[in-house]
Amino acid sequence: MLRFFLFTTLTVSTFVLGLWAYKINYDSRAADERVKELENSILSASKEIKILNAEWAHLNSPERLRKLLGYYFLELRLTPINPDDFISFSEVYWRETSKNVPAKLVGNRLSGIDHEE
């Protein structure tokens, strides 16, 4: 009886193990395929990104932007940045109410939400 039990267990476990090994084999192959697929799609995506980056750089080339500036000057009125565009903190125009407020408080007010008084 014991022997029969032993044989049955062995046979069944052999089958199970065989099935398991078979499954693992196929799973790993599938995983491998998937990795390859993913790597390829990463590669093609990165190539695409590269092309888009290059195109973006080309579209933003200073020479082209300069031409566009001329073309759209009437609408946009953009001029090159020049030293006049920098002003010192003391020259910032504050509203009447903030005239006597110390600078620190002004800073707080600017970071606050309440801008409309």
């Binding site: 090159p80 940045i81 020049n82 030293p83 006049d84 565009d85 920098f86 002003i87 010192s88 020259e91």
Partner: peptide, 19 residues
Amino acid sequence: IERTGPLMNVIPLHGASKF
């Protein structure tokens, strides 16, 4: 210098004249 100064973050001596 007038063109590249602002681009290189060099702050002008005194603020602007237009305000």
